[in-house]
Design a binder for these strands. Structure first.
Length: 421
DNA sequence: TCTGGGGTCCTAGGACCC
DNA sequence: TCTGGGGTCCTAGGACCC
């Protein structure tokens, strides 16, 4: 048995924990740059605000329903996520952290217990200890646990916890109640194609011949159907596999038309990406730079550019990565376009031992000491205290918009919530 | 005016190897 | 008439996830 614990409307719930007056009111959280709606409280969903809708298209509804709007505050959400996971770990030792708001639980070692009442206890404790409401689905495979979670959220009689029935006809009934497009692994494209084949529910998909799925779609679709039948194809990954790429990119608050601004923006991305890579103890074998115009502005000429450079040996040193990123930027830049987005991707990552280069003469221990000192200063004195001049000396228009951001309630002394006595 | 950011995997096709 | 068999690596495109 597996369970999936999923936080309800996670970002909106985080905002509410520290601002209880938002209870009962519609709350939305916007993506970076205050661009799109990425989280909605139930009241906001009821007001007809869609997931992923551009904020500027929702202004009228925001006004009409007096929606509380927040910019995303990932410092807060990351910390709240850690708290939720720590709370769950008090009850279940083997978990897979699947995303910022979802955790798979391995219930196999706890099969002698009443898992449903255990999950109800977990749900209550997480609410009590963190303030975050969660729902839990219980089933024999991860795909079915996802499905059970979906029912736990939708069906009020489940009261937040739903265990998939073990036998038919009850199990078939449960699977038939879930739209095929809501199955984990079926997105909008496959959903439409499946409906075209007469497959409308999770039950239909489970009953579809799996070699057909393999032929018409791919092996992932086949595995999804097998998992819906109760056959485990995806084990719980309690140790996260090492990442393969690390991306740092942003849309610009105002469109960028001059090279210096672009260059400073990309320098910032390169510096932050290198920092993060060192923090994770990795090295990169390559760096890519990309820049692009606004794809929604069909009245403006479009351009997507970029390039990739390799490192031998692999490195996490800011000056080495930055120099290549700047070279690639000069190479990819075309004058005369209105740029909307740019970023840096570190690839070919390795963790642990680094393959040396036969003709390499660089003093790596010295580089490492320099980077350690840099990171230490910035950790102590604040991010960006010491930084390459290429990142720019004054505020520029390329920085992102963030007009409704809540404080870092849990990670910054100056921003702790105050309690009136 | 205004449209996010960060990932993974699979497949097909081409280039190349012996 | 008749044109092998087996393999790897890379890339682009297309899906998917949150």
């Amino acid at each position: 048995m597996y369970a999936l614990a999923d936080c309800n409307n996670f970002y909106a719930s985080c905002e509410r924990v520290f601002e209880p007056k938002l209870e009962g009111r519609p709350v939305v959280v916007l993506s970076n740059n205050d661009g799109c709606v990425v989280a909605r409280s139930q009241e906001a969903k009821d007001a007809g605000i869609g997931m992923g809708e551009p904020a500027f298209k929702c202004r009228d509804r925001f006004d009409r329903h007096q929606v509380v709007v927040r910019s995303s505050n990932y410092t807060l959400y990351d910390d709240m996520s850690r708290r939720v996971v720590r709370s769950i770990l008090e009850f279940v030792p083997d978990v897979e952290i699947y995303s910022i708001d979802e955790v798979f639980l391995d219930l196999r070692p706890l099969a002698h217990l009443d898992v449903e009442s255990l999950c109800r206890t977990i749900r209550d404790r997480v609410r009590q200890w963190t303030g975050i409401p969660i729902s839990i689905g219980i089933a024999p495979t991860k795909t079915l646990a996802k499905l059970a979670n979906h029912i736990a959220k939708k069906d009020p009689t489940a009261r937040g916890v739903f265990q998939l029935p073990k036998t038919d006809p009850d199990r078939a009934l449960a699977l038939d109640s879930v739209d095929v497009g809501d199955v984990w692994g079926v997105g909008s494209r496959w959903g439409a194609r499946l409906r075209g084949l007469g497959i409308r529910s999770a039950l239909d998909l489970a009953r579809m011949p799996t070699d057909d799925l393999r032929k018409k779609f791919n092996v992932i679709a086949q595995r999804t159907a097998l998992e819906l039948r109760g056959l485990v194809c995806q084990e719980l990954e309690d140790v996260a596999p090492p990442r393969k790429t690390l991306v740092r990119s942003r849309s610009f608050g105002d469109m960028v038309t001059d090279f210096e601004q672009m260059s400073e923006a990309i320098a910032n991305h390169a510096v932050r990406a290198a920092e993060k890579l060192r923090h994770e103890g990795g090295t990169a074998g390559q760096v890519s730079v990309f820049l692009s115009t606004n794809r929604f502005r069909d009245d403006l000429p479009q351009y997507h550019g970029g390039g990739t450079a390799a490192f031998l040996p692999a490195t996490a040193s800011t000056p080495i990565i930055l120099r290549e990123a700047m070279r690639l930027t000069r190479f990819a830049w075309r004058q005369g376009f209105h740029y909307k987005k740019a970023g840096v991707m570190l690839g070919d990552l390795s963790f642990g031992e680094v393959q040396g280069g036969l003709f390499d003469t660089r003093d790596h221990p010295r580089d490492d000491r320099l980077m350690a000192a840099l990171d230490q200063v910035n950790r102590k004195m604040g991010a960006g205290t010491l930084r390459p001049a290429a990142t720019g000396m004054v505020e520029k228009g390329w920085r992102m918009r963030r007009e409704h951001c809540s404080p870092k309630y849990t990670t910054c002394w100056r921003e702790l919530p105050r309690v009136q006595t």
